[in-house]
């Protein structure tokens, strides 16, 4: 392959595989919120990327505040930023569901257009407040530098951090969805909203909290995102299509599918990138994903039950 020896190919695969792991972390974090909003609730939230951006800006603001008012505690700003990013995105998501989305549950195309418009409005608000150029917070010391895995292989601490957050969030969401009472309410409401209401579940409240939680998760993704890239008003929107593909390929209602799909897409993209250009790698990956979805519209992981 291209004049490389077998050992060189192995090293390249390992390097690109590690790079793919950080992309996996970003995809997974982004996709988790959407797996709830689109996968569980069936709402096509085109503003999902903007909730990532919102979380990134919230993190930037927290970092700036710590730098100005408590420089001695700067190393510890990140946990505060993650919680605040979640709360801000959760709050805005809650208001968006209450003010707009709940009126459009039976009108998916209108939801698509309306949330797309909300995304554009949010982008403009970010531009007006923070400007069009990227802003970035300094990473705390413990997130800087790399860990050497072998002579040729390095894993940056920030990539490792993003991956750890992604995995931790996945575990928390899995427990919430499949072990907690809240998850039972969500799964029954999304499966049959009218019947869930008729067995005694306050479905309007479930919808509002579920949508807000999905947005909050995007906020956490945004917070993690600041460690690997600068934040611009359109930072989150760039990942929107990839994120939808991750959720659809995995199987809309399957969390395990979302993890498997984020991993496969990230690895395919990262490994192909070395041998062909980045954009061609993306084209090729997307074509394969589209091919799979055409053959298996329900996604890779689905539950088979008698209806």
């Amino acid at each position: 392959m291209g004049g490389y020896t077998t050992s060189e190919i192995a090293t390249i695969m390992a390097m690109q595989g590690i790079a793919g792991l950080s992309l996996f972390g970003v995809f997974l974090l982004m996709a988790l919120g959407l797996a709830i909003i689109f996968g569980q609730m069936g709402v096509i939230n085109m503003a999902h990327g903007e909730f990532l951006t919102l979380g990134s800006y919230a993190t930037y603001v927290v970092a700036t505040m710590f730098e100005s008012y408590a420089p001695g505690l700067f190393s510890y700003y990140f946990p505060v930023a993650i919680v605040l990013s979640f709360l801000v995105a959760f709050g805005v998501g809650y208001l968006l569901e209450y003010g707009l989305v709940r009126h459009l549950y039976k009108r998916p195309l209108d939801t698509l257009l309306a949330t797309w418009a909300v995304g554009l409005i949010m982008q403009q608000i970010f531009r007006s407040i923070f400007g069009g150029r990227g802003v970035s917070a300094d990473a705390p010391d413990w997130l800087q530098g790399s860990i050497q895995l072998s002579q040729m292989l390095f894993l940056s601490r920030s990539d490792l951090f993003v991956m750890c957050i992604a995995i931790a969030m996945t575990v928390i969401v899995a427990i919430l969805l499949y072990r907690a009472r809240w998850g039972m309410r969500v799964r029954s409401t999304t499966q049959n909203r009218a019947m869930a209401n008729a067995v005694g579940i306050n479905t309007a409240k479930v919808d509002r909290n579920t949508f807000a939680l999905g947005c909050g998760l995007a906020g956490i993704a945004g917070s993690a995102f600041t460690t690997i890239s600068a934040t611009t008003p359109t930072a989150g929107a760039q990942y929107l299509v990839d994120t939808f593909l991750v959720v659809v390929l995995g199987g809309a209602a399957s969390l395990l599918g979302t993890v498997a799909s984020a991993f496969s897409i990230a690895q395919a993209q990262s490994i192909l990138e070395f041998f062909i250009t980045g954009s061609m790698a993306k084209v090729l990956t997307l074509m394969v994903v589209i091919g799979i979805i055409m053959l298996r519209p329900q996604g890779l992981f689905t539950l088979k039950v008698r209806q």
Partner: peptide
């Protein structure tokens, strides 16, 4: 109209919400 993808026990538990 049972909730098809929920388990039998989870279906019964939805009734406890009231």
């Amino acid at each position: 109209q049972v909730f098809a993808t929920l388990t039998v026990e989870e279906n019964i538990r939805t009734g406890l919400e009231a």
